[in-house]
Structures are given as C-alpha cells and as structure tokens.
Design a protein around this nucleic acid. Sequence first.
DNA 1: TATGAATGAGCGTTCATTCAT
DNA 2: CATGAATGAACGCTCATTCAT
Lengths: 223, 223, 223, 223
Amino acid sequence: MQSTPENHQPGCRWLRRKEARPGEIMDAALAVFIEKGYAGTKMEDIARQAGVTKGTPYLYFQNKEELFREIIKSAIQPRLDEVQSYIDASADHSLQQQLQNIADHWRQTVLETPRSGILKLMMAEAGNFPDVAAYYDTHVIQRFHQQLIHLLETGMARGEIRRLDPVYAAHIIIAPMLYSVMHKHCFAQQNQQTRLDSQLLFQQALDILFNGLRTTDIQTHHG
Amino acid sequence: MQSTPENHQPGCRWLRRKEARPGEIMDAALAVFIEKGYAGTKMEDIARQAGVTKGTPYLYFQNKEELFREIIKSAIQPRLDEVQSYIDASADHSLQQQLQNIADHWRQTVLETPRSGILKLMMAEAGNFPDVAAYYDTHVIQRFHQQLIHLLETGMARGEIRRLDPVYAAHIIIAPMLYSVMHKHCFAQQNQQTRLDSQLLFQQALDILFNGLRTTDIQTHHG
Amino acid sequence: MQSTPENHQPGCRWLRRKEARPGEIMDAALAVFIEKGYAGTKMEDIARQAGVTKGTPYLYFQNKEELFREIIKSAIQPRLDEVQSYIDASADHSLQQQLQNIADHWRQTVLETPRSGILKLMMAEAGNFPDVAAYYDTHVIQRFHQQLIHLLETGMARGEIRRLDPVYAAHIIIAPMLYSVMHKHCFAQQNQQTRLDSQLLFQQALDILFNGLRTTDIQTHHG
Amino acid sequence: MQSTPENHQPGCRWLRRKEARPGEIMDAALAVFIEKGYAGTKMEDIARQAGVTKGTPYLYFQNKEELFREIIKSAIQPRLDEVQSYIDASADHSLQQQLQNIADHWRQTVLETPRSGILKLMMAEAGNFPDVAAYYDTHVIQRFHQQLIHLLETGMARGEIRRLDPVYAAHIIIAPMLYSVMHKHCFAQQNQQTRLDSQLLFQQALDILFNGLRTTDIQTHHG
DNA sequence: TATGAATGAGCGTTCATTCAT
DNA sequence: CATGAATGAACGCTCATTCAT
C-alpha cells in the first residue's frame, strides 16, 4: 500500500520531509478528521489547527486524500508489531494477567491518546475508503484478533480456560475496547454525565470473562 | 426494503407517488449516508438511489440537514418503548433467557435490517451533529443501558447472578452489539473472509457472560 | 409588437381566453411583479395570488416572459388614445385648467390604482426588457410628452404662458407625476410618516408652475 | 471609474489586488445590479464585469445580499453631510443661486457618475429590501428634503420667495432630479433620440420655479 | 519555505416548466 | 380546464488546489 515513508527516493511523487512540520500537520489533520469526518474537514481547518496557512500542507502532502491515507498508514505502521512483542515479553504470565496487561497497555497508549481516534475515523470513513478500511482491518484488527486467538488457544492448552471457540471469544474481548473508543469520541464529549471509566470497564470485563472462561474450577475445588 | 425504482416504464417521465416518496427517499438517504457519511453524500446520490431526480427530495424535505435529522428521528421514535414492552412481556423468564430473547430480537429487527446503519451513522456523525448524537445517546443507548441495569439488578435480587456493578456489566453486554454493527457496516463488505455470525457471537457472549455472572454456586458447594 | 389579444386565429401560438381567468392572473402577476421585480417573482407566487395552482398560468400564457410582456402591453394599449381624447374634449379650457384636469384624471385613474405600478415596473425592468422599455417610452411617456408639448405650444400661441422651450417645460410637468409614483411604490409603504398627498402635490406644482409660466403681463396690466 | 480589468497580461492567471478588489467588485456589482436588478444579477456576471472569476467576490463579501447592502451603505455614508456642508458654505448666496449650485453640484457628482444608479437601484429593489429602502429614504431622500425645506423657509423669511408650503415645494424641486436619474438609467440607453440635457432641465426648472416662487416682484416694480 | 489571493469544479438549492391525472 | 408531483437547467456558494510573491 503506497511506499512507506522510509523509501523516499528522489523522484518519489510526494515529498516527505521528516522534520517537525509534516508531523504537526498530520496531528492537526487527525484531530480535525476525527471530529468532522473526511469530507467535513476543510484543508484550511487543518492548516489553522497546525498553525500554518492554507498552502503549507500542500508542501508536504500531495492532496487531501494522500494526507488522510498517510495518517492512517503512519498510525498502523509503527504499531504492527508492538502488541506482538508485548505479548512475547509476557508469555509466561497467566492468561488473565496477559489480557490485563494488554488492556492496560492499550488503554494508556491508545485509548487515552489522540490515536484512539484513528479507529473511530476508520469506522466513519470505511465507506469512502474501502481499501484503507480493508487494510486497517487486515493489519490491525484481524491481526490483533489472531493474537488474541493464539493467546486463548494457549490458555486452553494450558488448561487455564475451558474449551470454546477462540474466534468468537476473541471478538468478545475486543468488543469492549471498540466500545470504549466509540464512547469516548461520539458521546462522552456532549453528555458529561455519561462518564465511562475505561479502567473499571476492562477490570470488570476481565472479571466477568474469566469467571466464565475459566475451566470449571468449581469442580476442582470440590475434590 | 426500498420500493423498486425499476418500475419506471420507459416513456413515462415520472410517477406520482406522493405518499410513498418520503419513505423511499429516507430509505435511500439512509443507505447513502451510512456508506459515505453526511458530508460525503450528495443529494443527487440520494435522489438517484431513490429513483428520482435531484429536485424531488426537496419536495419532501427542506434541505439535506433536515433529511438527515428526520432519518434519525424516525428511527428513534418508534423504538423508544419497543424494547421495554418486550422486556415486560418476558418478565418471568430467567435473566439468561431474557437476555437471549433481547439479543435475538435485536438481531432480527435491527442488526439484520438497514436500521442497524443508524447506529453507525450516529457514531460517524457525532462530531458534526452533537445535538442529535446526544439525543440518540440519551434516548436510545442510555435508555437501553438503564433497562439492562434494571434487568441485572432484578437478576441479582433473585439470586440469579452474583453481585457486581450493574452499570459496567450492562456496558459489557452492549459492547458486542455495537461491535457487530460496526463490523457489518465497516469491514464485512470489503473483507468477505471476515464473516461474523452474529447469532453465534451473541450465543457465545451469553455463555461466557453467564458462566461468569452466575452467582458463585462454587462457594455454596463448598459449604 | 406581437399579435394583439384580438387576433387569436386558430394556430395562434398562445391561447388567449378572454374570460375572467387571464385577467385575474395578469392582475395578480402585476401586483407581484411590482413588489418583487421580474426575476424575484416566482410563478407560484403569481398563481397563489390569483387563487390558482402552479400549472394554471401556463394554460393562458406561454411562459413567464410572455406573461410579463402581456401585462405591459395590456396596460399600454387601452391608454394610448385615452389622454388624447381627454385633451381634445377640453380644448377650449385654459391651459392651467387643462393641466389641472389631466392631473386629476391621471391621479384617479392611474396613480391611485394598481396601474401606477406599471411605471415603477418598467423603470425597474428596463435593463432586462429594453425592447419593452423602449416601446413603453415611445408609446406612453414620449407620447404624453408630445401631448404636453402641444398643449404648451398652444398656450404660448394663445398668450397664456410666456415663451420658453416647451420640451423641457413638459419634462418639468411630468417629473412630479413620476415622482409620486415612485414615492408610492418605493417608500410610502415602509415609512408611513412619509405621506405624500398627491392632490396637494399637483395643486401646488401647478400653482408654482403657473405663477412662473405665466407671461409677465402682470406689469403690463398694472400700468 | 472601474480600474481596467484589461491589464491582465496573457500568461498571468491572476493578479493580486487585495486592496483594490473590493472597490472594483462593488463598482462592477453596482453596474450590473442597476442594469438587471438584484435577482436578475448573477454573481458570475459581477465577477466577469470586475475581471475576476466567480469565487473571488466571496473573498470580500459574505454573500450576494451583503454585497448589495454594502453598495448602498457605501453610497449613503460619505454623502450624509456632503450636501449640508455645501449648503452651509453658500449660506450668504441668494436662494436661487443656492439651488442652482446644488443642482450643478449634484449633477456633476451624482447624475453624471455611476452613483446615480444607486437611486434607480433603490427604487427597483425597494420591495425586496424594504429595510434598505427605508434607511435610504430616511437618510438620503428625506434628509435632502429637510435641507431644501430649510432653505425655502430661510428664503421666505428673507422675503426672497412668497409664502407657501415648503414641504411640497421641496418635493417639486426634487422631482426633476429623480426624473433625470430614471430617464438616464431606464430609457436613454435604448432610445438615443430621447436625449435629456440635464443641465438645461435644471436651468429651466429653476427659471420656471423662481418666476413663480419669487415674491410678487410685480409690486416691487411698482415702487 | 511559506504565504494567501485567486481559481473553478462541484454541490446544495431553487424554480420555470411539463404533463399524467 | 385545473392540478401539483416531478423534472432539470441554472444559480449561490464552497473549498481543494495553484502559484506569484
């Protein structure tokens, strides 16, 4: 999917200067795209948010669409293996502990940062950028899904959880994560009373999940 | 769904369908809004989808924004008490059975119909229509949330489930519903391999939830 | 200038039915055209004002422009010789009396009727309908101007007024008439305090005019 | 008048004239509004007349209506006290001399410039912009009317003219001014034979008026 | 590099006009 | 004759994009 930022040969169609400017513009653009959607966002809004004038974004990005795609790409690229390395590093923890760690980490590095908006943005614009959405789905969501499946299978193999379809179980683990993102970006800002403490949410989710996922230790307690 | 715009005989420049038109246009508009978002949707797209020409929607709706709001309103109004009455009718069932019924009913009447798109649309456009989003949140999401809380509290009082914070438990029940909507409208169409069987999803979700929500009869077994 | 209403042969492009409807529509159209101008007037406004629906005016007039032209024509035609015959009938009166009569008559049959609006309409639309304006100028304004010139020349020949350029004198007689029309249609409706009593206006105008137009035989009479 | 749009060199897609533009656009807009009326004028006509493209006027004026109102405002503002100061400066002249000066001045600075069109425009659009028309009436026409009334009253007090209603006398002085404006903008361009020499018109008007307004100098001849 | 005046394709909306009823 | 739903050309206005400065 388009050349990565690193491979900018001379002759590369779009200039990429890896100084501060492009990053500032992408940050600004992300914020505005999340708030207003792709079509609802004016290049001038982005420029103003970035503290530059109308023409400047065009020095770094060929056009609005490329700017949009770059944002998504730049959000996907660096994270592709992040979770995996994180998982590998804690391979000897219990499944519950691993999931707890993943949730905590994700909460701190995604949910509570502007990057959570990428997900919301992808959802909103999937119809207009099906290729980007498919790419995001494949490389982010499904990848994470596979990682969860693997964790669950390992957990089953270890006897930590009872046997069940790991594919759907993984969906059920992902669901509250997506839910918290949508809540944050769609409703929380207006209805202040609708506070959602995501730490509590994940804590309770894991509690509920595990007291159900766990192999019937009840019986074992009997013995 | 949409009454067939195909029934234009050639030679008949237009049909007169004063009663049917608004509904047809709203159906068409919903479909296009969901796909492209509010700003990305052209009135002419809507008209074409409805089988009319660009001027016709303006005979029934003042402008694009009013058409948008009407769609949301018309989706909210009739459902306000639907779930409640459904809940009331099955008050004597077990909690698990009630949740199963709710999930089935919702799947058949919302998820598997175009109306599921309303939720996706609300999420995508919350930034541009904060008032509508807040209204939707209050009257649909929070209301359903309250209903779930009530069910959970009743279940706790009855001893069907163990004591826990019903607010967050309800969030965890809602999460897979929202997840399935997003999946359907954002990714399923492109990545055909990403099939999500929502019936299975909810079935397994309830299985997992209940084998965790269930009061820890383990302890009682201990005594 | 287009065929007159009378000559509607079969085959005539535009139907003219001389019953009530066309007249009602023209009256309505005149009122709205005067108020809003040609371009600012919607055919539906005209129809509503006439108590019919959108399509009806098209049964009698080919299109908006023809309707407009018909109104002007119908206002011009019947008046072409009206003033002349009126003048002829009072040929033996004094010039001052004749002018007084003309002013009274014009005030009652034009200024104080909706027909005064035709003049205002012509002025407003002269740029868009130069042919109509030129026709109106030639056949109404200049014609009246010529009639006044003739009266003034007669008055000079009779020794009723001193010798001066009758062309400009006639302009000066016409000016208050146009002034009263503009006042009525442009300002009087808003600023109610700006009442202009046209009878008084013409009375004083004639007084002033005649005490100046009169040959200075005063001195001679004295001696 | 309008700065030459001709000075576009070929090969230069646009000129940057931030300071000059608003004035150029207003000049162009005034010309087109006068010719075609408000509703009949397309923004693109204005732009073309100003030598720019359709988007440019919107860089300086919010919309068509604001552009219209600005034109009127800008024509009213600077003139509010112009006549008064002019009158004050010639307070010791005879009334006839004062009126002659006013007429000359007005002819040179208004009638024979594009600004005369403002009056025509106000008349044509009074129905669509009643607030603007009322403002114009109050601050331009009635104000001038009051100034004339004051001059006439002074003239009466000085014994320069006989006693009469100064309100209507002032109307009669204004009438030829309005008449000449209408003539210029509505008929003169088409019917070239209808030449109206405004200098002659006012000269003769004053002659006629004064030979009637003058206190009966007849008596003075007696002494 | 950065600016921002200017461009012009494109969309929302209107309304003169048509024609099946 | 009359209606009014539907049409579609045209206009107001926006905003992504360009490029002289």
